Simulated scan of single mutants.
Amino acid sequence: MQPSPTLARRFWEAVEPLHALVYFTPEPAEAARAVGLTGWWRGYFAGRIAPLGALGGPAAAALFFAFSPVKTGYALPAAWTQAAPEKVLDARLDAVRSALDRTLPTDRTGLDELVDLLERAVEGCAFEGRPLAAAWSDVPRPADPLGRLWLAATVLREHRGDGHVIAVTHAGLTGLEAGLTHVATGAVPADLIQRSRGWTDAEWDGARRRLVARGLLDRGGRLTKSGGTLRRELETATDRLAADPVMLLGESGLTRAIELAAPLSRHLIDSQVVPLPNPIGVPRP
């Protein structure tokens, strides 16, 4: 069951890999180690949350509620005893520039135009109730096109991601339960989500039983009719909450941005920089 291809969803699919290479290339992990962070996941959580400062505990668990609190708690606030948020942020920005320069096609015709369109799209974003997107929007704009590209793509994806959290909680699901319903759509394998998000077998099983009791999953873990309806409503709400850039750029501007971004993202996927399937659930645009 795949969601309908709204402009907001097509925009996300075209732009997301330009952000997501940060999770799959060696440069960011090496940069995190270089500033003193131990363990890949400390680099992941500290890197994503750095613009908000040295958060940890319940605040970090709330922001990353798709992950097990145990996994989040391993990383934060301990990461801040190893490296300050400012150092983590600077290292991450430098690393993604290098990663993009290495992995993008050598022919980058239209890159400047794409950067301008993405930065204009960011200007259309409202940040009420969206802490990660708001924090990243306050990061000073880099001077170089690749740094600007990644930062704009990051603000847009965190804007959509924060909106997705709003939609999930409004639907009455926990982050773990939302993960199980995502798996049930067939978009991503169960073991990939469970392993990457840090849920134990007991936690995964308990969430599955709750969803079965609510009539959202059958005993085989498949979406029921009610579950399918809820999942479609969830994706529709996520698209609606991600509509700010669409409204600002309009159909022609969004279409042009997709036209420029999609070949770059396809290259990252086709060259296996961003794997398929992936925990994010982003497909090849």
Rank of each mutant, 00 (worst) to 15 (best):
R92K: 15
E233D: 15
S271V: 02
A207K: 08
G172W: 00
P145I: 09
T103F: 14
G36K: 13
A99T: 08
V274P: 04
A243D: 15
V155I: 00
P283N: 11
F127V: 01
P26L: 04
L63C: 01
G220M: 08
K225T: 15
A187L: 07
L217W: 10
L114E: 12
S68C: 03
R232Y: 10
L18Y: 03
E86V: 03
A20M: 06
Q272L: 14
L173M: 06
P85M: 08
L234C: 08
E27W: 10
D244K: 13
A99Y: 07
L173V: 07
A14E: 08
G47E: 05
D205F: 08
A91G: 10
L114G: 11
A243M: 12
G220Q: 14
A79L: 05
F64M: 05
L230F: 09
E233Y: 07
R33D: 12
R222A: 15
A79G: 06
A187C: 07
L249S: 09
G221V: 06
A121D: 09
G206Y: 08
E16K: 09
Q82K: 07
A84P: 10
V165D: 09
G172F: 00
D162N: 02
A46I: 03
L149Y: 05
R284Y: 10
W40F: 15
I258Y: 11
T238N: 00
L117H: 05
P26G: 07
P77N: 04
A50Y: 11
G281R: 11
A190F: 03
G253L: 13
E259G: 15
W204S: 13
F127M: 02
H182F: 14
P58C: 01
V188Q: 03
W136D: 01
V139C: 11
T238M: 01
A207V: 00
F127K: 00
R42Q: 10
F45V: 02
R284H: 11
R148S: 07
Y74T: 14
P263C: 13
Q194T: 13
W199V: 12
A84Y: 06
P275Q: 08
R141K: 07
A99I: 07
P283Y: 10
W204N: 12
A134F: 00
G53H: 02
A14H: 00
E86S: 06
A20D: 15
L37C: 04
A153Q: 04
A213P: 06
R42N: 06
N278D: 15
P85G: 07
T109V: 14
T229E: 15
D138Q: 14
A75F: 03
G221C: 11
A99V: 09
A257T: 12
L111F: 05
S252C: 11
